[in-house]
């Protein structure tokens, strides 16, 4: 539905505009004191990751310098799993009658968008690493294929969110898809155990038998923290933009309806 600037800024807008006027709450943008602090923490941890990932942590005895892709590859896939899990939890909260609220739907949507972005980064970093280690950008082994499947599933989820209808229709449809899609995560995670593939098994599952050099493990830890902070910052802002978008849609619809009514009266 096209919404003109006029619909929002015109003070004389007729009709009932009661309801959530969220645009007023974030007049200066989507930032708050908290998100600015979160942003600073994100930049600081990213800087720390650059120092540890590129300079402090050692090269691997077999893989050499290319092992540094690990921090991006594992850090981003961790965020993607986290994001899709948050989407599922928020969707469950939206569907559950006692907690149903559009804020859960927006958190679910925002989290899925960021998750898709990070999953794309995982696949991209993985392709580069694959070329260096395996000799191939892409192989159809179980882990790589199921990861691509997960990625495409969540692009489908975002498409379902864009089907149209009311905000609550969007919320219900997408929540059902989110609760089904999240079941793919264990499939992706255990694909290296279920089937023989080219992709390695995870190096940090049993905390007593970590197959990673100490400084590499620490750098990976920083990467996970840095990417998780970035994820939180992005989701908070995106979810607020979505709230403004919803409010804008509502106002535009009310305005258009009022105009048609006025035409009828006149």
């Amino acid at each position: 539905m096209p919404v003109t600037d006029n619909a929002v800024t015109d003070n004389r807008t007729p009709g009932d505009l009661s309801g959530s006027d969220i645009t007023g709450a974030f007049k200066s943008g989507t930032g708050t004191r908290f998100t600015r602090l979160l942003g600073i923490a994100t930049i600081a941890s990213m800087a720390l990751l650059i120092v540890f990932g590129l300079f402090v942590s050692p090269a691997d005895v077999i893989q050499g310098e290319s092992v540094r892709i690990l921090y991006i590859h594992v850090g981003t896939v961790w965020v993607a799993y986290l994001a899709f899990s948050v989407t599922a939890l928020a969707s469950a909260a939206f569907l559950w009658k006692r907690t149903t609220s559009l804020i859960w739907d927006r958190i679910a949507g925002a989290s899925a968008e960021v998750g898709v972005l990070f999953m794309a980064l995982t696949l991209f970093a993985g392709a580069l690493w694959g070329r260096l280690a395996w000799g191939k950008f892409w192989v159809w082994d179980a882990r790589v294929t199921t990861t691509a499947f997960l990625f495409i599933t969540y692009i489908g989820y975002l498409a379902v969110r864009g089907l149209g209808g009311s905000h609550h229709q969007r919320g219900r449809r997408s929540a059902v898809v989110a609760l089904l899609a999240v079941l793919e995560i264990p499939l992706v995670h255990f694909s290296v155990k279920l089937w023989r593939g080219l992709h390695q098994d995870s190096s940090v599952t049993d905390t007593t038998k970590v197959k990673l050099h100490d400084q590499m493990l620490f750098s990976l830890f920083i990467a996970v923290i840095a990417f998780t902070l970035l994820y939180s910052w992005l989701v908070i802002h995106r979810q607020r933009v979505m709230a403004m978008q919803d409010a804008l849609d509502d106002k535009g619809l009310d305005y258009a309806l009022q105009q048609r009514r006025d035409e009828g009266d006149g």
């Binding site: 090269a59 077999i62 893989q63 280690a133 000799g135 080219l198 390695q200 995870s202 990673l212």
Partner: peptide, 24 residues
């Protein structure tokens, strides 16, 4: 040919580089 590397990561030891044999 595709190389199936393991899930073990160890730091490169510079003194070992002089040997002719492969790191693996």
């Amino acid at each position: 040919v595709e190389v199936k590397h393991s899930n073990e990561y160890t730091a490169k030891n510079k003194s070992r580089l002089t040997t002719a044999e492969s790191p693996a």
